[in-house]
């Protein structure tokens, strides 16, 4: 299966579908962008694909809470289809709003039957939407998408990206299993310790920028890898700081390589 098919899932308000599809194509995948209504009509459409990506944007306007309405639709109508997708050894990626959607549906962190959701993404400590670049470090080798990556420089652009676990115990579990796989680190090259605003742009607990499920095949992150695949997307490329390709491309390449 040399060329995996990627489903870019679109909903009202999704707006990073074009560049996300482009990034997957650059990485060697075939992509198809489908409206969530098509999948609600016919969940068997998932079977055609090896990778599901929920891209960034404002699904349903972020009305009520970011990712909530699409997350609920998945939970109510597509839960079974996605469970089968996951069991078939396929990959799922949620970027920014897509991460919010995956976290607000049971796909990424199945809720505790008794106590409900285990974690959430909520309003930034700054109280507002911000677009800025952050340094990131990969914390474990659990996640398929992050194989071979140590650090990345990517932009974030969100208002609700603060990762909060329900309690200490949940957080410790997630760290213990290596699921808090991507972390914000200080801009200062020499430092790898914990960081504060703006290096941690939203106040996330334990500087968490992205998490994966226990299999490492479902991954959600707040930063936008698709916005750094070309050197001229780097904010300081005119200073000669960009590489020959952007740091984000490897995430898409890893997804494609997984099916080699």
């Amino acid at each position: 299966m040399p060329t995996p098919n990627v489903l870019i899932l679109r909903a009202p308000g999704t707006n990073c579908d074009g560049e996300t599809a482009f990034a997957f194509q650059r990485a060697g995948a075939r992509t198809e962008t489908l409206h969530v209504n098509r999948l609600l009509e016919n969940p068997r459409l998932f079977e055609r694909f090896q990778i599901l990506c929920v891209p960034g944007g404002f699904s349903y306007g972020d009305d009520v809470a970011a990712g909530r309405i699409l997350g609920n639709q998945i939970q109510h109508h597509l839960d079974q289809a996605l469970a089968e997708f996951k069991e078939a050894g396929k990959l799922m990626l949620g970027i920014c709003n897509g991460f919010q959607v995956l976290l607000k549906s049971p796909v990424l962190l199945p809720p505790d039957p008794a106590r409900g959701p285990r974690a959430t993404l909520t309003l930034n400590d700054s109280g507002r939407y911000e677009d800025r670049w952050v340094r990131l470090k990969v914390q474990s080798d659990r996640c398929v998408f992050l194989q071979g990556i140590d650090r990345m420089y990517l932009p974030v652009a969100h208002a609700e990206g603060k990762f909060v676990a329900r309690d200490e115990q949940v957080l410790e579990e997630l760290i213990g299993t290596g699921q808090t796989v991507l972390r914000y680190i200080p801009q200062d090259e020499r430092s790898e310790g914990s960081c504060s605003f703006p290096d941690n742009p939203n106040g996330s607990t334990a500087d968490v920028a992205g998490i994966c499920d226990v299999t490492g095949r479902v991954f959600g992150l707040m930063p936008h890898p698709e916005r750094h695949i070309d050197p001229t997307q780097h904010p300081r490329w005119t200073r000669g700081e960009a590489g020959s390709v952007g740091d984000g491309l490897q995430i898409f390449v890893n997804a494609v390589k997984y099916f080699y």
Binding site: N15, C16, G18, D131, Q233
Partner: peptide
């Protein structure tokens, strides 16, 4: 910073 100036991926 409150405006997304990079969406659509073409920022140079």
């Amino acid at each position: 910073r409150q405006y997304d100036h990079e969406v659509q991926g073409g920022s140079v």
